[in-house]
Design a protein around this nucleic acid. Structure first.
Lengths: 105, 105
DNA sequence: CTCGTAGTTCGATAATTCTCGTAGTACGGT
DNA sequence: ACCGTACTACGAGAATTATCGAACTACGAG
């Protein structure tokens, strides 16, 4: 049970909660992930973005972002492709994502 | 030392960090405080908003919001008046605050 | 089938942080 | 001067979370 090609659970747009999204984006590692995903554009391999943490920690952060509804993750071979849920986030909180992503840092 | 009428420390606009702001807004109690401050409008007494926590916990949350640069707090008699730092937040992250405040909940 | 790569899961630890109660400070009124 | 109200400070407990290492699963290439 639980093979890697099983669809991963994602919240529906209606089930995305602002607090979970804010919490997900408030962590420096996760914010960096999201910024990079945004920069690279559509569909980037999770592992391609280098981070100052081990791979199990990376898994934890990717899951946090996925469960909050910030990214969508789909298996592709041995990799997993992550995409920002721009459409959903823009529909729910218009302007928020752009404002956060374009913030200086 | 440290009398109540001392000016409380607030970060300059340039020192406001997006991560701190997101972290401050990610807590349900603090988000409720901010929503209420926004609804009530300019300058509301911190203690006027009722919360399901004790007053020392309230102090903690107010300080977190203040130190993140989300609100400005000024002594006024025995009370403290809190105001959203709309101008600064809108300048730094245009559209973010409105998007968060108008999110359904 | 075996190997290497990509990622997950589990258990543990360390760090935050949310929460509270108690004690204390500041200010305004009587 | 005294009291009540508003809030802060400190110390401690409970909960959450960030992090890691080790063991495991899945898939593709040879």
């Amino acid at each position: 049970m639980g093979t890697m090609s099983d669809a991963l659970p994602h919240p529906d747009r209606a089930d995305i909660r602002i607090e979970a999204v804010l919490h997900a984006l408030a962590d420096p590692v996760r914010l960096h992930l999201v910024r990079e995903m945004n920069r690279i554009g559509t569909g980037c391999a999770c592992g391609a973005i280098d981070l100052p943490v081990t791979k199990s920690t990376r898994t934890h952060h990717i899951r946090t972002l996925r469960e909050a509804g910030v990214i969508r993750v789909t298996p592709e071979g041995t990799s997993r492709i992550a995409t920002l849920r721009r459409d959903d986030l823009d529909a729910l909180y218009p302007g928020m994502l752009d404002a956060i992503l374009s913030a200086e840092h």
